[in-house]
Every structure is written in C-alpha cells, then in structure tokens.
Design a protein around this nucleic acid. Structure first.
Length: 571
RNA sequence: UGGGCCGUCGACUAAUGGUAGGUCAAGUGCCUUUGGAGCACUUUGUCUAGGUUCGAAUCCUAGCGGCCCAGCCA
C-alpha cells in the first residue's frame, strides 16, 4: 500500500515527528486498520473546556486530519449525577471556535443498550458477576498498593443468579450502592485496575439524555473502550494517568471480541502561573474570585476567547509544543509568544490613550482640524490606511512625559522634540501643575514643515509617541489584565493555605475613561486591535454603542520597562 | 516501599546506532515614523556509573530522580 504519510502536510504541521504520528504512520504502513485513521474527542459534559483541552482537540482532530482521517465528538456521559446538558453547547461552540469540525456526534449514552448486552455476554462467559459488597467493603477487599486483594464472597455466584440479579438491578429493584456488576479478572494483580473493577453501579438518577430509562450506569472503564470499538476508533488518545487503565481497556475488547481500538497516552498540558483543574477553576468562579467561567483571566476556552486570543494562535501553539510522554510544565511566555505573533500579523493598529495628559500645541490654530493619514497595519500593506483627526488639544499618555527624564528616557520632556505619530514634530515648551503638584497639562510648539512625521531638513527625533485629539476622542473603559497568580506554580503555598493565597491582587485593573480614536466608536464585539505602543486589545461583550469596553489581551513587549527594571535592580 | 510511565539547554521539543538541532526565554548588535515588529549573533543540555559497539542521547545492566494508581469519578 502507498504510505499516506508521503503526502505534503499543511505548513502549520510540517515539523518533526512525534510518537503518536509515528504510530499512525506505522499502522498505515502495516495496514493495521485498512488505511483508516479515526479518532475521537471525548469530553465529559460536566464543565467548561480549558486550554489543556485545546491540546487534546488539536491532537484528536489535527492528527487525524493530517492522515485524511476522521474525528468524532463523543460526550462521555456515563455519570448522570455530574453531567448537565448546559455544558454540551458550550463545548461544541469552543471546538468550532478553535476551527475544528467533527464528523460523527455521539454520546456514550447512545451505547447503553449495547453495553448492557455485552455485560450479559460477559456474565454468561463467567467473566462478570454481581457483587453485594458495599463501597466500603469493596475498598477493603481491594487490598493496597503493596498487598493483594481478597476475592469477594459473591465472586463465585452461579451464572444464572448473576443474570437474574443484574436484570433486577436494571429493573430498579435495588437501592443505590447496594450492588455492582464487576468484571472477574484478578484480585491479586499488581495493577489495581484489574482487581475486579466495577462495571456498573446503581444510580437512581435522571440522565440528561436517556431520562429515567436507566438506573444502572456503566463506569468509564467499561464504557470508553467499547464506545471506541463501536465507532471504529483506531487511535484513542488520552492523558498519561490512564496508562494503568490500558490493560483493562484491552481486556474488555479482547473478551468481547470487538474492534481492536488502541489507547495511546500523551502528556497533559501544564502552564506556569496557570491552574487547569476543573475543581479549582470551579472554586474561583463559585467564590467570586473571578467574574465567571468566561472571565478573561480564566484559562477556559471561553475565557481565553473573551481575552482576545486568536484561535489560530492556539493551534500554532499546540503544533509547536509537541506531544510526548514526559511530564512537564510549559512557560506561559511560550503561549504568549504565539498570541503576539498572530496578533502582530492580523490586528489593525489604532491609537488610544489609557491615562490621558492634555497636550496643547500653542502655535496651532484654535479651531484647526486636520485629517492625518495613518497606516492600518504595517505588517499587512493590504490593510490600507485611515484618517485620524488632529487638532490643537490632544491627549498623550502620562507615561510619555517626564519633567525630569531619567537616563535613556527618550520621550517628551521640557525642551525635547519628539514625533507625534503620523502627525508633527513637537517640542515641549512648558507644563502646568495643579495644587498637588501633579502635571495636568503640557505645552508644545509644532513644526508645520514636519507634517506626516518627516523633517525636510533631515533632523531626527529619538522617539515617537501616540495621541488622540481631545475633541474627537471617544471615551472607553479598558480592562487591564495580568497573570491571575503570582507564583509560577499556583499550588505552591505555605502550610495551611491554598492556591487562593497566590491570587494576584493586580490581575484586573480598570481604566476609565480611556480616550480612543474615533474610528473605534463602532468597533464590533470580539474584534481585535493593537493600540499602538501599548498592546493588543479586543472589544468585550459588555461593550455597547456609546459605552465601549476593551480587554487588554497582552501588552506589547516593552524594552523600556526592561531597562527601568534592570536599572532599579542595579541600584 | 507493589505496579505503570518518564528523565536532552532555564522551559518545551527534535535527532528512530553515525555532525546534539529547533522554538520560547535571556543577552548583544543592526534596523525602525510603535523603545512594537523584523534581522544577525551569543550563552547554556543528553540524570549517574558501568557495559555492548568502529561509533551510544539512542541498545544492555545497576543506581538516582520525577509523575501516576488503593472512586460505585472521568
């Protein structure tokens, strides 16, 4: 057979091999699955997807795609007490947002009937039995990591009795927890998962899809592999902690003689300054430590989206980080790099002033207004230009003026000439302070011959600063985000404390009103911009006409900040 | 201390017995109408000890270190 891996791969994935791709290539070469690659993404609908899932999605969908394969979306809904339909739509929406499309849409619950039949088959084969032990007793009988378990007294129950009892379990004749169906494997196995694992438990609970049809529900281990087999999944990827489950995954498939799906485990994504545990994220939300699941500081996909991370950047990130079986933690900076790279490429530039300082051009006509031509995106000539109104009174950034400039500070200060981006050279001639000694106004003269930003005599200025025209500017609320936690490992805490003690008190700062150029007045929700010299910003869903709200996605890399920092450290 | 998995620059990841390479981070310089972006250069690495081999990150042995497993969660 012609190896499919000879086909050119998409540019984004044209990098070195990884062990999963190697397995796929080898399976294709050996024709193990008739030339097919079929994967699945199996979220449990009990919470929101996070950046860790983005990696799984990238692998499940992306890898299959590279070999012309297919990917199913399968909701792993075997526990009605935890799962809710409200999560289903959000999960689907996040997958679509990331840019992926599933082939089949299934639920583990679609297979409850088949799973039940297979359970009966295993009972008939003498490979499963109904156990009357309580949860506590089962734990006791299971043994420990170092000591073997003991067989349940019900283990040798006759097949007919097992059949009868299991049927009555299903019929609802027994209360929750009173009995289970267990696989009969090996109570002395060093792998705890093989010590007669529970296949079914009694749960008198309404299921979000099957309603009250069932009161017994399959466990993950009994449901997952068989669901894979039913769908003809060839490569079933999951995270490392399931390695110990693989022998069980294979055991059910072998006993049942069904399609031999194979489970492949990879390393979960860990990021510095980031928590990716559903339980802890839930605490942040329920205790009001963030504003919700889609708070832009959250690592959830809905949060990241609201923050303004482009989906393409996430895909590039996943492609770059690779996949292995090594447990590690990625530096957040790696993620941020791919966000900036994408945004630099696609975000239109605009001017906005976060902390306005009035600048008056004393030699400019009182009511003069000019439309200055500005480039929308220097990285993309096709993005064209726009007009930005200029007038006598402007706002500049407070940070861009110093009465007493430190060394290496190139921005505006008394006597210094700088360029106003896309406008004129201006020279500071004076300043005005209030009673408290704060600078409230800067006075400048402009050189009319430098219109557009070039001096005909060829003289240079050391810096260019951004501005908005005071009369034309639009007010906006700007939400500035920083890392949610102060420690690279948010779980690193003193005795008696938990991760909430590592919350960064400055993770959200609201600036209001910021002054933005008028072209932003009609900016659509979710559209992404670069505020020149400041960073990348996007329009928050809270935004409305006349009430603009922006989120800072990420600040630009700031060489000056680094100079200041190392300067302070050096002193 | 039963079992499983894993150890390559500060971080992540390639090299599939044959030149230890890439990305991020850090640093230096160039360039610049964003102190952005870009470009160039630089620093740092095969857990340890033996062994096999002409040749070992790769194979073998023994250590050391890390992660996971005792839910009727997934």
């Amino acid at each position: 057979m012609e190896p499919l891996n000879c086909q050119p791969l998409p540019a984004s994935s044209a990098r070195s091999s990884n062990f999963i791709r190697d397995i796929m290539v080898s399976d294709l070469d050996s024709n193990k699955y008739g030339g097919r690659v079929q994967t699945r993404f199996p979220p449990e609908p009990n919470g929101y997807l996070h950046i860790g899932h983005a990696k799984a999605i990238y692998l499940d969908f992306g890898l299959a795609d590279q070999f012309g394969g297919h990917t199913n979306l399968r909701f792993d809904d075997t526990n009605p007490t935890k799962e809710e339909t409200e999560y289903v739509e959000s999960i689907k929406e996040s997958i679509r947002w990331l840019g992926y499309h599933w082939d089949g849409l299934y639920h583990a619950s679609d297979y409850f009937d088949q799973l039940y039949e297979w359970a009966i088959k295993l009972i008939r084969m003498g490979k499963a039995y109904v156990d009357d032990l309580s949860a506590d007793q089962i734990r006791e009988y299971r043994g420990t990591l170092t000591a073997p378990g003991r067989e349940s007294p019900y283990r040798q129950r006759p097949i007919g009795e097992n059949l009868n009892l299991f049927e009555r379990m299903r019929a609802g004749q027994f209360p929750n927890g009173s009995r289970t169906l267990r696989a009969k494997i090996d109570m002395s196995s060093p792998n705890l998962n093989l010590r007669d694992p529970v296949m079914y438990r009694i749960l008198h609970a309404e299921h979000h899809r099957t309603g009250n049809k069932w009161c017994i529900y399959p466990m993950y281990d009994y449901a997952h592999g068989q669901s894979d087999a039913i769908e003809g999944i060839t490569h079933s990827m999951c995270t490392l902690e399931f390695e110990d489950h693989r022998p069980l995954y294979n055991w059910f498939i072998e006993q049942l003689g069904i399609f031999p799906s194979q489970q492949i485990e990879f390393d979960r994504l860990n990021l510095t300054y980031t928590l990716l545990s559903k339980r802890k994220l839930l605490r942040l939300v329920s205790e009001g430590l963030v504003r919700g699941w889609d708070d832009p500081r959250m690592p959830t996909l809905v949060g990241i989206r609201r923050r303004g991370f482009p989906p393409e950047a996430l895909r590039n990130f996943c492609a770059a980080i690779g996949v292995t079986k090594t447990n590690g933690t990625l530096e957040l900076e790696m993620l941020e790099h791919f966000i900036r790279e994408q945004l630099n490429h696609e975000a239109p530039r605009v001017m906005a002033v976060l902390r306005p300082l009035r600048l008056i051009i004393v030699n400019y006509p009182e009511d003069g207004v000019e439309q200055m031509e500005a480039i929308n995106n220097p990285e993309d000539p096709g993005a064209g230009t726009r007009k930005v109104p200029f007038s006598r009174v402007l706002y500049i950034e407070q940070e861009d003026f110093r009465e007493h400039p430190p060394k290496q500070y190139y921005r505006l200060c008394p006597g210094r000439e700088v360029r106003l981006r896309y406008a004129y050279f201006v020279t500071c001639t004076g300043l005005v302070k209030n009673d408290r000694g704060e600078i409230i106004e800067v006075h400048c003269t402009y050189d009319p011959k430098t219109r557009g930003g070039q001096a005909p005599d060829g003289r240079k200025v050391k810096s260019t600063i951004h501005w908005v025209s005071a009369t034309h500017a639009v007010d906006a609320e700007v939400r500035l985000y920083e890392k949610l936690f102060t420690k690279t490992d948010p779980d690193e805490v003193e005795e008696g404390k938990d991760f909430t003690s590592n919350l960064n008190p400055n993770s959200l700062a609201i600036v209001r009103p910021a002054k933005v150029e008028p072209s932003l007045a009609t900016a659509a929700v979710e559209s992404r911009y670069q505020f020149e010299r400041l960073g990348y910003f996007c329009v928050d869903p809270d935004s409305a006409p006349g009430n603009l709200v922006f989120n800072r996605t990420l600040a630009l890399k700031d060489t000056w900040a680094r100079i200041e920092k190392s300067d302070a450290a050096g002193r």
